[in-house]
Design a protein around this nucleic acid. Structure first.
Length: 616
DNA sequence: AGAACCACTTAGCAGATTTCGA
DNA sequence: TCGAAATCTGCTAAGTGGTTCT
């Protein structure tokens, strides 16, 4: 099928000029447009759904580790420069108005904007902010402003509130104009050419300066996240592309041509000293292929998971402590879908843990509890400081091992003192090529969805019922992976509103039923065409209303069950989209009911290649 | 072996946009 | 047609895991 028949230029490359086309591929390639032909051979171009030319280079790509041959882009978009406050908006220190230097003023505005937030009341936040703010002050300012609690930012705060209010009140035309300008920027900076495709970039805007807010109890909250200058930026593109220009009067830190990586732009951030990247959108070929590969690895695990389970159960009896610990940790990762738990720099980040970094204080053992034997109670802050809390009954051997691991240890000691993620992953690598701890999460999430869908849906259900079942299956996975969210602020109210609607609908229904009864009685006595038709109309009305009622009730159940559970993360990152696509096809549910536009773009590969009998 | 570095995926939230229902 | 609610999108922090340096 690789025969390149005439037809059309691959996707929007056609809109580029002749020069760019030449740079992009040397010759203009023609490809055949046919979506149905190959099921598993490769990904489709996400823009036009022609076959991707990159397929042709697959072998080459695999061997030398290069990720692309040609890459051209316009570089990042910088946030607008700081606009000093009008003179009427004043800052007060110790009750006296004080004009700040632009540098100090800018940092002050970051704080002023956050005044409504709870974290400006936190000691660490205030301390970090004040320390970094002072660094931006002139020496006079520094000598005057010595205490944060004497600073009065309220005028500034009011000013920004008024500004955002004004923005909301803008006329339709003004809003339209802004929208158009954004669209122009998107078209210019939001796309790149990678090999023969015009691809959407994920985050092409440089992060604006501000005050850092980590999640949970972060020791660095409130620190100044500094403004990124062109001199901080490394550009990555191909040698034969037109390099992006640095803004007038500036230069890039570096322009490099590294096709072993996928990023276009990088810079070093000043809070943790880590590197930030501009990369492609999930709809891009390079992300899609990686995603596909991830699920293929999880499917390979499926084939051998029973063997691995047998082995780690065996290892619970090992005479070596390190092997027992490894086996118990792996059991947790497999059974509870815990994350690996890399070590973190103490004092640099919030105190959170995963499996390998669990400490004594995070676990409690109950030989008996709630009528169950060998109950393990886990309670720890996980990623993003989201609490993981679970009570689970385990095998006796696991329990005994845990007791052993806990012996002679203090609360702050590591539960698995002979284990870390690197040791664990080395072991996993020996069991299967590409196997790491996180593959278990992907595998268990996807297999759970597939099982739950099978269990919960029946082809006799109507579409809303099927969707409820899908959401429930999705929810089972989200619960497994501990994907939580704060209950929406309007939750109680909107639940109440929905209940009111349901009650009204019920009344409507009984009224309609009454009318139907009356109509039937009429028809029986009158026996004419007109009254017969009336019966039919009333029947339809009853049917319609009861359908509406059911839909509302389904909605209420769904929403109640979803109060504190976030479905998005698992849908986007853990569930093989082919399971959902196959389910939709099999049960006649339009894919749009399951995936919105962005999600359909991300999963274009799966939507195209999957038929209804796909099995994970 | 362990630390440091790097690249990439996964995560929840806030604000923007769209949809819904009176 | 309007305001509220629902949904989506962008943002960027926080993980995982590989490689390189010491």
């Amino acid at each position: 099928f690789m025969t390149s028949l005439n037809l059309k230029l691959c996707c929007s490359l056609a809109v580029l000029g002749k020069e760019s086309q030449k740079r992009a591929g040397g010759e203009v390639e023609m490809v055949r447009h046919n979506r149905d032909r190959n099921k598993n051979a490769g990904l489709f171009c996400n823009v036009c759904l022609c076959l991707p030319l990159c397929l042709r280079w697959e072998e080459e790509k695999c061997t030398d580790g290069s990720k692309w041959r040609f890459l051209e882009h316009k570089g990042p978009v910088f946030p607008p420069p700081y606009e000093p406050l009008p003179d009427r908006v004043r800052f007060y220190y110790d009750g006296k108005a004080m004009k700040l230097s632009p540098g100090a003023e800018e940092v002050a505005t970051f704080y002023a904007k956050m005044l409504d937030h709870e974290y400006t009341t936190k000691d660490i936040f205030r301390k970090n902010f004040f320390k970094d703010w002072r660094k931006e002050m002139t020496s006079e300012e520094k000598s005057k402003i010595t205490e944060l609690k004497k600073c009065d930012f309220t005028e500034m705060h009011e000013y920004f509130k008024a500004q955002s209010e004004a923005r909301k009140q803008m006329s339709k035309e003004e809003k339209q104009k802004i929208k158009e300008e954004n669209e122009r920027i998107l078209q210019e900076y939001g796309y790149c050419v990678m090999d023969n495709h015009r691809e959407r970039i994920g985050n092409f805007r440089i992060e604006p300066p501000g005050l850092f807010r980590g999640r949970g109890d972060h020791p660095k909250m409130g620190k100044l996240k500094r403004r990124i200058r062109p001199e901080d930026i490394i550009i990555n593109c191909s040698k034969d592309s037109v390099h992006p220009k640095a803004p007038p009067g500036t230069r890039w830190k570096e322009v490099r041509h590294d096709n072993k990586v996928t990023w276009l732009v990088s810079w070093t951030e000043n809070i943790q000293g880590s590197i930030k990247y501009i990369m492609l959108n999930p709809s891009s070929r390079i992300k899609g292929e990686k995603d596909w590969q991830k699920y293929e690895t999880a499917r390979r695990l499926k084939k051998i998971v029973e063997r691995i389970r047998a082995q780690y159960r065996e290892d619970w009896r090992s005479k070596e402590m390190r092997i027992r610990q490894r086996a118990v940790a792996l059991y947790f990762i497999d059974k509870l879908a815990l994350r690996a738990g890399n070590e973190k720099d103490e004092g640099e980040t919030a105190d959170t843990v995963g499996c390998c970094s669990l400490r004594v204080e995070h676990i409690r053992l109950h030989p008996q509890m709630d009528g169950q034997d060998y109950v393990v109670e886990l309670d720890f802050p996980g990623k993003d400081s989201i609490r993981y809390y679970n009570k689970v009954s385990v095998e006796k051997r696991v329990f005994k091992n845990l007791q052993l691991f806990l012996e002679n240890k203090q609360a702050k000691d590591d539960l698995f003192d002979r284990l870390n993620t690197s040791i664990l992953n080395k072991h996993l690598q020996e069991l299967m090529d590409g196997l790491t701890a996180k593959v278990f999460r992907t595998y268990n999430a996807s297999i759970t969805l597939q099982q739950q869908l099978k269990e919960l849906t029946s082809s006799d259900d109507n579409i809303p019922e099927k969707i409820l079942s899908y959401n429930r299956a999705n929810r089972a996975v989200a619960v497994l992976c501990n994907h939580q969210r704060a209950p929406p602020k309007t939750f109680e109210k909107s639940m109440h509103n929905l209940q009111t609607k349901i009650d009204e609908k019920k009344k409507q229904l009984s009224a309609a039923k009454k009318e139907l009864k009356a109509a039937k009685a009429d028809a029986k006595t009158l026996r004419d065409e007109k009254s017969k038709r009336a019966v039919e109309t009333k029947k339809k009305a009853v049917q319609r209303i009861s359908e509406q009622l059911m839909k509302l009730e389904v909605q209420a159940t769904d929403r109640e069950e979803n109060k504190q559970i976030a479905l998005g993360t698992s849908k986007l990152n853990y569930l093989d989209p082919r399971i959902s696509v196959a389910w939709c096809k099999k049960l006649g549910v339009p894919i749009e009911k399951i995936y919105n536009k962005t999600q359909r773009e991300k999963f274009a590969w799966a939507i195209d290649m999957t038929d209804e009998d796909f099995e994970f």
